[in-house]
């Protein structure tokens, strides 16, 4: 009875550690296989198309509307102090530092991370991963590493697009719709926005790309339990990736800024 209770307390903690360990191990193996010949450029390219290109539209829409709503919200605040010119700065800083990388990562998690988990999960339950191993091919190298590399490269690219369209969206709402002085808007934006803000945002995005791809691949790679297991793995991949992204965002922010 008592042992049972102890077991029920210990085992979830144990599982968390085991999971962290497995994710870390998978990341380590991926790094190891990334630098072993032959390089699977066509696989990486395919994943870049999948993670990057196919996410462009959703990222652009997210970015534009985020910028627009930021402009609208901050306008009402700044108008009370007669400093509407700061709207541009607020939009630009919020987007480049936080919302660009984070929202892009979350959108890509929803779109591509879930698909990664589902794909790898399906490959696992239909023994395609075993088939690769039987062919003396390392599934980490063929399946996981290209996805991580592609996410690592594409997330910053998507983020810079989101940053740009977000700032443009803010500009349209702020200057064209709300009639904020265009010169003040642009100059304040340029004055307060540093290159570091943009670059740190992109570094964040690259880290998020690694996190979401490693977690999603891990969840897919170790799927068990047939079609139902694939569904569960997909859900877990999205949830765990999103939460990890938000947590690591705090950590990264506290380190960077």
């Amino acid at each position: 009875m008592f042992e049972n209770l102890l077991q029920r307390i210990i085992s979830p903690v144990e599982n968390i550690f085991r999971e962290f360990g497995s994710i870390g191990l998978m990341f380590y193996q991926s790094i190891y296989w990334m630098f072993r010949r032959p390089f699977k450029f066509d696989y990486i390219l395919k994943q870049m198309e999948f993670v990057g290109l196919n996410s462009v539209l959703v990222v652009v829409i997210t970015g534009v509307f985020t910028g627009m709503v930021l402009a609208l919200q901050s306008y009402h605040g700044f108008r009370k102090f007669g400093s509407e010119g700061l709207v541009g700065m607020t939009v630009a800083l919020s987007i480049t530092r936080e919302l660009g990388p984070v929202l892009t990562a979350l959108m890509v998690t929803g779109r591509a991370g879930s698909a990664m988990a589902a794909e790898l999960g399906t490959m696992r339950v239909t023994e395609q991963i075993d088939a690769l191993m039987v062919m003396a091919l390392n599934p980490i190298k063929y399946l996981v590493a290209p996805r991580i590399i592609a996410s690592f490269i594409m997330l910053p690219l998507l983020t810079i697009i989101a940053d740009f369209v977000g700032i443009v969206g803010g500009y349209i709402v702020g200057v064209k719709l709300l009639g904020i002085n265009e010169g003040a808007y642009i100059n304040k934006t340029i004055q307060y926005l540093d290159l570091d803000d943009i670059y740190n945002g992109l570094i964040k995005a690259a880290v998020f790309g690694v996190i979401l791809s490693v977690v999603s691949c891990y969840k897919g790679f170790y799927t068990s339990g047939g079609a139902e297991g694939v569904g569960r793995a997909t859900t877990e991949a999205v949830v765990v990736s999103s939460v990890s992204i938000l947590i690591s965002d705090y950590v990264l922010t506290s380190i960077m800024f």
Partner: peptide, 27 residues
Amino acid sequence: NISTEMKVGILVVVGIIILFYMSFRVG
């Protein structure tokens, strides 16, 4: 494959152009 390369290539170039443009404006 070729079209994938093209598409990804275009995306990468667009991203880098935007990055350079923003860096130039903000720099």
